[in-house]
């Protein structure tokens, strides 16, 4: 089972490699990838250096080009595919059917992974992508329960990669347009959800307000921890109640499920967080390296498990983790 870690920049990439990632994934400095953050991602030169660093140490490199090009951006996206191919990455992570087709025709020997943004939630959908575009692997959306993942693992025609740790998307990825409804950017169009350029913090008599393009996402009282206003994690009013109507600000952690995922034959576990610091990537990779290695053991080591869970918890949003949709009770 591969451990796939985020590389938002070169220092993070090196940390992930040093701490034992089997693969790292990165994107270019434009809207072609789903983590377009200011100051993040790779130039050609940096990518070259990172790929050299990783591959010479036995670590694979995947390139995420997983947003949806429109006609006026088509050439920028195909250029990113060509660039990744010429840099010698081990696989492309793609979502758009047109771009998958372009990659399959233009670079047939370069592995194609279906991004989580491709929204494949059934073995039939996986078969469609495999037959039409020859995908080798698919990253599953975070909306599936463990029993659904189990069904898929049994019938999937391709390798499966699942999210193990990091931010939790509660909507089926690739088909969530909430961000572009409130701002002019979405993960699909610009690789951004609740973009920082649209965020305003305001101290008011009613508390600290977090607004996204003017829309009040949450209001924090003194002593409350104020998290980034990702729009689906704010407090809203439904009926007479004001609460986290969509989701609490928590992170996903599937540490407890790891032995099960391994037994199901899941090919890779993925750590989310290209936007996080190199220090974060180092810590998370270190813990998960140990956990993945230990997952095959006959006797689970509950003491070590607890220690890992505690370390991960400290690194999580609001210091809270959840099994998310993997666990039925979440729903």
């Amino acid at each position: 089972m591969e451990l796939v870690c985020p590389a938002g920049n070169l220092p993070a990439l090196k940390k992930a490699v040093d701490e034992g990632a089997d693969a790292v994934y990165f994107g270019f400095q434009n809207a072609t990838n789903a983590r377009q953050f200011i100051g993040l991602n790779f130039t050609d030169k940096r990518a070259n250096e990172g790929i050299e660093y990783a591959q010479s140490r036995g670590c694979k490199v995947f390139c995420a080009i997983n947003t949806y090009p429109q006609p006026n951006g088509w050439r920028e996206w195909t250029a990113a595919v060509d660039q990744a191919a010429s840099l010698g990455v081990d696989a492309l992570i793609l979502a758009d059917m047109g771009l998958l087709d372009y990659a399959a025709q233009t670079h047939p020997d370069l592995s194609r992974h279906l991004s989580v943004q491709g929204s494949a939630t059934s073995h039939a959908a996986l078969r469609f992508y495999q037959q039409q575009f020859g995908i080798k692997r698919a990253v599953l959306p975070r909306v599936l329960s463990i029993s659904q993942v189990e069904d898929l693992a049994r019938q999937s025609p391709v390798e499966l990669e699942v999210f193990a740790f990091g931010s939790l998307c509660i909507m089926a990825e690739g088909r969530c347009y909430l961000s572009s409804y409130l701002t002019d950017e979405s993960p699909n169009t610009r690789g951004a959800c609740s973009p920082a350029k649209a965020v305003r913090w305001l101290e008011t008599d009613q508390g600290l307000e977090a607004r996204l393009n003017g829309v009040l996402i949450d209001r924090f009282q003194a002593g409350e921890k104020a998290g980034y206003p990702t729009l689906c994690k704010g407090r809203f009013a439904v009926g007479d109640e004001t609460y986290h109507a969509l989701e609490e600000p928590v992170s996903l952690s599937t540490l407890d499920l790891l032995p099960k995922l391994k037994a199901l034959g899941i090919s890779a576990v993925k750590i989310e967080g290209r936007q996080r610091s190199p220090a974060y990537v180092a810590q998370v990779t270190r813990v998960w390296r140990q956990a993945v290695d230990a997952a095959g053991a006959a006797e689970p080591d509950s003491v070590r498990m607890q220690a890992w869970a505690a370390q991960l918890s400290q690194l999580s949003e609001g210091s809270l983790t959840t099994l998310g949709a993997y666990h039925r009770k979440w729903k």
């Binding site: 909306v143 088909r175 979440w330």
Partner: peptide
């Protein structure tokens, strides 16, 4: 009203 997102969670049941 525009359909904007789908989840495995039911937000009406959650309410």
């Amino acid at each position: 009203h525009l359909p904007l997102a789908w989840s495995s969670r039911c937000f009406t049941a959650r309410y």
